[in-house]
Amino acid sequence: MSDAALFDARDDGIAVLTLNRPETRNRLAQDVREGLFAAATTARFAVTDK
């Protein structure tokens, strides 16, 4: 997963996706979009694995 979008699955079932490109004001550049897609995929599998 890209450092442009970070994923955290909390114990209470909440998934947190964080944009991590402050130098570009979190513009939705290619790396951020790829990171969001990867994080969403990870979140989907984290939910279905429980």
Rank of each mutant, 00 (worst) to 15 (best):
E23P: 05
R44H: 10
A4N: 10
T48Q: 12
A46G: 11
F45S: 12
V32K: 02
R44A: 12
D3K: 06
A38Q: 12
A39D: 14
R33D: 00
T41A: 09
Q30V: 11
A43L: 13
L28K: 12
R25A: 15
G13P: 14
R44N: 08
E34H: 08
D49M: 04
N26R: 07
T42R: 14
F45K: 12
R27N: 09
G13N: 04
S2H: 04
R10I: 01
D49S: 15
A5Q: 04
V32W: 00
V32S: 04
T48Y: 02
D12A: 05
T41R: 04
D3P: 13
L17F: 13
G35E: 03
I14M: 08
R44M: 10
D49Y: 02
L28W: 13
G35S: 05
L19I: 00
D3Q: 06
D8T: 08
T18L: 00
T24F: 05
R44P: 00
T24S: 15
F37S: 09
D12L: 02
I14C: 03
M1E: 08
L36R: 01
F7K: 06
V16L: 10
A5T: 11
A9W: 10
D49G: 09
R25L: 11
T24D: 06
R21H: 02
D11L: 12
D49Q: 13
N26I: 05
A15T: 09
V16S: 04
P22F: 06
E34A: 14
L17R: 04
I14S: 05
K50W: 07
A15N: 13
E34M: 04
A4S: 15
A4G: 11
K50N: 11
A39L: 06
D49P: 00
M1H: 12
L17H: 06
A4H: 05
R10H: 12
R21T: 15
G13W: 03
R27M: 07
T42S: 07
A39Y: 03
V16N: 03
T18H: 00
D8P: 01
F7C: 05
F37I: 13
D49N: 06
T42N: 03
R44E: 06
T24Q: 13
L6C: 05
E34C: 06
M1L: 07
K50G: 10
L19T: 00
